[in-house]
Design a protein around this nucleic acid. Structure first.
Lengths: 242, 242
DNA sequence: AAGTGGTCTAGACCACCAC
DNA sequence: TGGTGGTCTAGACCACTTG
């Protein structure tokens, strides 16, 4: 017979485990570079089971305080990257300016044709040629987003022959003289599911932020449509309006 | 002894349950006004346990396809509200224009003083008087956000005496002649935790979107600082830049 | 080979809500 | 009062990563 120590007002156990871990992070006992103790160890420490421990970890993950890396364990989340999607910006420069180390991998480049989904978002006609670029981007070695970029080859002839592991923004400006104008941005929180989740290396259902951005040049000609799938704890969006 | 029907490549059971429910939603068998079958029924239908069923439901919840209401059950999520935080806008008008029914409840109004957290965000001095307003807003009867609004009584004398169950934007314009300028907006996905989660009536850890907005008048004088806690599936953000 | 998280079982009791 | 989700137990085997 277990003694009833609980008062009516005591938090559920998994929230107390959450708070205990959160306090350790706040105190600096756990830092972004360190791994948390394993789920089995944490369960034993708090005299409970793995299921309850995982509930606590899921809370902290949802808050963006910790994340998991494949089957390697749980880690404290690094600070969010400040991201200003209304700016012409270079991911690499932005990451570097915030004291972090960026990396970009081109997954594939495909010359294809505009479908109806893309047509309604870009103003291109169905069947128009389009160049589809998939990239993965990392901060400090952690993949934080995958993106689909759709480029207008009529405005950017020969674009598919370039190397995309560097700043696309610089490429457009320096090689094509493009000054981006008239951006339409849409974003909402959602879970990362299959092709994107496995591309980033997280389990399906991990919280994410979906961002799309449609950019035109100074003449209003469609240049690129960008679809980004971010880990939800990796960024903080800033927008300024004057 | 259970027969091994599985091939190596079969999805985990909880993802198959997820896909089955998602297909029913897509087919229109389940609509935003209907409740899903109970967890115990769903578990029985898929010949599994409640734990696995809840994993599937959590996936759909993370994607923003379903949500839970207190202990009443699971429901299909309604469409996301399109929200343009850079606009001077009325929540009520915006919701109404999208064919939905808005509601606003003022939770409390307090005259207090600027603390350090608020001072760094607004440019007010620590100790300056401030009016703190808490509101809850609903769409079609579902609470979708709670907000803390901090108003500058130097720019808005007597503001604390008004009724806040209507459009604050109209009040500022009509009673004080304020034209909002120079907004700074910041937002990131995170979980809703305690005071806000219970104010909205969801369990702690529910996915949310945190939005702050600092607004000044045409003279650059601080007018209001708004801190919004949204349910993550309730909105889609749109920003346009020219 | 050992340890990690990922998936899953078969139950239990509790708090809250609708009837 | 009966049904709902919320919390929790005490295990198990699997897939993958790391040493």
């Amino acid at each position: 017979m277990q003694e009833r120590v609980d008062e009516k007002s005591v938090s559920p156990l998994y929230l107390r485990v959450r708070d205990h871990l959160a306090a350790q992070i706040a105190k600096g006992l756990l830092t972004p570079s360190t791994r948390l103790p394993s789920e089995r160890i944490l369960a034993e420490e708090h005299d409970t089971t793995r299921v309850t421990t995982r509930l606590a970890l899921a809370q902290l993950e949802a808050e963006g305080r910790i994340y998991r890396s494949n089957r390697r364990g749980w880690f404290v989340s690094p600070p969010r990257l400040i991201y200003k999607p209304t700016h012409d910006y270079s991911f690499s420069e932005n990451v570097t300016a915030q004291g972090r180390v960026p990396a970009t991998e081109t997954l594939d480049v495909t010359s294809t044709h505009t479908n109806s989904w893309l047509a309604t978002r870009t103003g291109m006609a169905i069947g128009d040629p389009i160049v589809w670029l998939r990239r993965r981007r990392q901060i400090d070695g952690r993949p934080v987003l995958v993106e689909n970029i759709y480029l207008n080859p009529k405005r950017l002839p020969g674009i598919e022959t370039y190397n995309f592991d560097r700043s696309l923004w610089k490429l457009l400006r320096e090689q094509y003289g493009v000054e981006l104008r008239g951006k339409q941005i849409e974003m909402y929180p959602t879970a990362l599911v299959d092709p994107q989740a496995s591309a980033i290396g997280v389990t399906a259902g991990t919280a994410g932020l979906y961002v799309t951005r449609c950019s035109r040049d100074a003449d209003g000609c469609f240049v690129e449509f960008d679809e980004e799938f971010w880990l939800h704890d990796a960024l903080s969006i800033q927008v300024e309006v004057s």
